[in-house]
Design a protein around this nucleic acid. Structure first.
Length: 476
RNA sequence: GGCCCUAUCGUCUAACGGUUAGGACGAGUGCUUUUCAAGCACUAAAUCCGGGUCCGACUCCCGGUAGGGUCACCA
């Protein structure tokens, strides 16, 4: 069977990480099976629609490399891919149901239905519209919502590719709305019609939809069409572990992670592992490895907590795997302008390994730069006398040591002023002094203005001979 | 309240009746070392509770408990 999956977000704001994981699993499954992945926009709620969302969704997916074979921007055999442009399809199927006597206009006002609901809730019973279903149906004049007449009230059992056998009682069945009074279909109706017309074979979605499945199955029954296979995904919980991760409880816009310097493959890797595992002890995956290894049978059933710390670790592991060129490209995106302009091109590249080496100290590239870790490359450091002091060494001794460093470093020719030579020179002095700390700490501080900094030898090379000697002199 | 889903170290998870309950993140300790990191080694840390079935239960069954979801003219 040719696999067809889809991701069908509604354009109501940014894409958060939970939505992305659903998209990812559907995409992985399609790619693994050499199938088709469709992007469909479910824009049937004009009230909640947020301008610019579609572009945002597309940009988020593109950043992560989740590509689609059919979708709003590229078209496809089942175009259009915006539900608001598919109203004729929904009308056609609605008419089929009306003709079968399985759809009818809702005679009540919204307020009246609200009263029914409140009354049911008050006596602690589930609200069921069908208990108020009219005995005779009016002809639909398009001004009232059109409801589905559930043909048979019964318990449903079905098989889920992830959860196995699922079932629900008859309470899960109700006369839900097919077409709203504004003429747009509801999700419950539209997504089924679209999935039928687009030939979707596997439906992946969050576990919050389990209780709606009987409604869907009942609609498929009414239409005489075989439903697709369902794969239900476990929920992602917030970092407090208490609630399902949602926009309200701090689920971030995925593009925020891009801004902060996370690699898309790291985000994919992390999201893939949030609810799925390969069954062996691998944790770091390339996209291709994920496509090869991913399997619905190994998707978990219980909710997993979002964990920034683990994400940081995975990001770090992916940074380590980058080639020099890729790394340079990535880091340059986040460097402040001063750093890009002020340094000669050749030397700017030298800060790359420094950043790589130290990235794990911070959660991401952006934070590292903002915290001033790299300021000293383009800014003269401020010196504080007490900071220059090392353990019990007097300031005279420090000045002496720094002066010695200046003399020896000055012997190096400009073209030989490279990390290795600088290191040898300073180490020789340090060994003569029989204390590396008494020389290296003051040098480190003089060059960077920091107690904790990258290797002072590399800093010296990047700063160049003149700047290095001048900073040492200034410190004295 | 009805219906539904879930339950292994702090966190993510492995073990599809027989293991000293494994791995990873994080934490701690040590080594290395020019600081902070990184790296390496080691340590602590878990089967929600109660019944059954079985020679044997993390695993199967039942009952609790806890968490989550759902009961929209939202998706």
């Amino acid at each position: 069977m040719k696999v067809v999956t889809r991701f069908a977000p509604s354009p109501t704001g940014f894409m958060h990480v939970g939505g992305i994981r659903t998209a990812l699993y559907a995409w992985l499954w399609a790619r693994k099976n050499k199938g088709t992945f469709i992007l469909r926009i479910e824009d049937t709620d004009k009230e909640r629609e947020v301008a610019g969302s579609i572009e945002h969704i597309i940009e988020s997916l593109k950043w992560l490399g989740i590509n689609w074979d059919e979708g709003p921007n590229i078209g496809g055999p089942n175009a259009p891919y915006l539900q608001s442009e598919r109203l004729d399809s929904y009308k056609k199927y609605a008419q089929i149901l009306i003709d079968k006597g399985l759809a009818y206009p809702d005679p009540y006002t919204e307020e009246e239905v609200g009263i029914f609901r409140d009354r049911a809730l008050l006596v602690k019973k589930p609200f069921l519209y069908r208990e108020h279903r009219p005995e005779v149906f009016d002809k639909w004049d398009y001004t009232k919502p059109l409801r589905f007449k559930t043909p048979e009230i019964k318990s449903y059992k079905w098989n889920d590719l992830v959860y196995g056998d699922l079932s629900a009682g008859p309470e899960a069945l109700d006369d839900f709305i097919l077409i709203k009074s504004d003429g747009y279909p509801t999700y419950n109706f539209a997504h089924i019609i679209d999935d039928i017309e687009m030939g979707v074979t596997h439906v992946m979605r969050g576990q919050e939809f389990i209780s709606s499945v009987p409604k869907f199955l009942s609609l498929y029954d009414a239409l005489g069409i075989k439903p697709p296979l369902y794969a239900t995904l476990p929920p992602i919980m917030g970092e407090d572990g208490k609630k399902k991760l949602g926009k309200r409880d701090g689920a971030k816009d995925v593009l925020e992670y891009r801004k902060e310097g996370y690699l898309p493959e790291a985000m994919i890797n992390f999201l893939a592992l949030l609810g799925w595992n390969p069954g062996d002890e691998r944790e770091i995956f390339t996209i291709d490895e994920l496509i090869k290894t991913f399997d619905l049978s190994r998707v978990g059933h219980s909710g997993a907590q979002w964990n920034d710390v683990k994400l940081n670790w995975i990001n770090k592991e992916h940074i380590k795997k980058l080639s020099k060129e890729e790394l340079k490209e990535n880091i340059f995106k986040y460097l402040p302008e001063e750093l890009k302009i002020d340094l000669p091109a050749g030397k700017a590249g030298k800060i790359i390994p420094i950043i790589t080496e130290r990235i794990s100290k911070w959660s991401d590239i952006k934070e590292m730069i903002e915290r001033g870790e790299l300021d000293f490359f383009y800014k003269q450091p401020e010196f504080f006398r007490d900071k220059l002091l090392y353990k019990n060494i007097t300031s005279e001794k420090i000045s002496e040591n720094l002066a010695l460093a200046i003399v020896e470093l000055n012997k190096l020719e400009e073209k030989n002023f490279i990390t290795e030579n600088i290191k040898n020179t300073l180490m020789q002095i340090a060994d003569r002094l029989e204390s590396r700390g008494e020389l290296l700490h003051p040098v480190r501080y003089a060059l960077s203005g920091l107690d904790k900094s990258p290797d002072p030898f590399i800093i010296a090379e990047i700063l160049g001979k003149n700047e290095t000697l001048s900073r040492l002199q200034k410190a004295i």
